[in-house]
């Protein structure tokens, strides 16, 4: 490593890593000191949480819960994409389709996914399918609306250029329309994935045997293990951060960068 590269790393560390680490450390310290002066039989100290986490890691159950939650999110989210992107394109390209479907989706979109839980249980029972359905519902409507809006905002000059070159039909779809909307679709995916992660935890609180949401409810119900509740919360936060980071990597693709630079 050259000295200038080393310096850049040092600056990055100072600016981006050190301040949040200090802030979080201070918050944990306040939490700890507060409990030292006001001892509580139920509320755990940071030390308790670390011990609780170690326990979950040691018996391996944590991996099962994380795996279950991630699997539900991946499935529900992927299903939503498979439905939403073609549907959004269809709406974006044909005014009649848009005029017919858009009002319905605009009504469905603001309904909290949590409100669907009773319906999900009614239709699918207390099963794996219920949370997957909830995640699907949470992501499919915003993705449809976002995709259709992206098609509507394609700059006409690009479509004109294609028409000028005599290119039409599927080639315009593949080489002009889809790449033109991709940056906005990726932003939509990032937001939706964040929402999925929020929702899966809520959905899993409804009587299932696995998942991080289940872990929280189960820890509380089975002996007030608030150390495990907080451990699960922290893990949820960290995985959410990780998922967002992964989606951000997509934004770095060269063929979509044009939209974010400038």
């Amino acid at each position: 490593m050259t000295t200038s590269a080393a310096k850049r790393w040092q600056r990055l560390l100072l600016r981006k890593v050190v301040p949040p680490v200090i802030l979080i450390s201070v918050l944990i310290a306040i939490w700890w000191v507060w409990l030292a002066y006001h001892p509580s039989p139920i509320f755990p100290t940071p030390g308790d949480v670390v011990r609780g986490t170690a326990e979950l890691v040691k018996d391996g159950t944590i991996w099962d819960h994380i795996g279950a939650s991630l699997a539900r999110v991946s499935l529900g989210f992927s299903l939503a994409l498979v439905v939403a992107i073609p549907l959004g394109l269809w709406m974006g390209l044909y005014e009649v389709v848009d005029a017919t479907l858009n009002p319905l989706f605009q009504i469905m979109r603001p309904i909290s996914p949590i409100a669907w839980i009773p319906i999900a249980i009614l239709l699918l029972g207390v099963s794996n399918a219920s949370p997957i359905f909830i995640i699907f519902i949470a992501t499919v409507f915003p993705m449809i609306v976002q995709t259709a809006a992206a098609v509507h905002t394609i700059e006409p000059r690009y479509l004109r250029a294609a028409a000028n070159f005599g290119v039409s039909g599927p080639r315009v779809l593949v080489h002009v329309i889809i790449p033109a909307i991709l940056p906005q679709v990726i932003v939509g995916m990032r937001i939706s994935l964040g929402v999925s992660w929020l929702v899966v935890v809520a959905a899993e609180m409804i009587a299932l045997r696995s998942g991080l949401g289940f872990l929280i409810i189960d820890s509380r119900n089975a002996g007030n293990r608030y150390d495990l509740v907080i451990a699960a919360m922290i893990i949820i936060g960290l995985i959410g951060l990780l998922l967002d980071g992964l989606m951000r990597l997509l934004e770095r693709l060269k063929s979509v960068r044009w939209r974010y630079v400038k």
Partner: peptide, 27 residues
């Protein structure tokens, strides 16, 4: 419009998601 006459406008219409070569090949 037709390929016989090509329009070059003020804002330009080079596709930002394609490389220089890909733009020419697309045309």
């Amino acid at each position: 419009p037709s390929r016989k006459g090509i329009l070059i406008s003020q804002q330009g219409s080079v596709f930002p998601w394609m490389t220089v070569r890909e733009n020419l090949l697309f045309a």
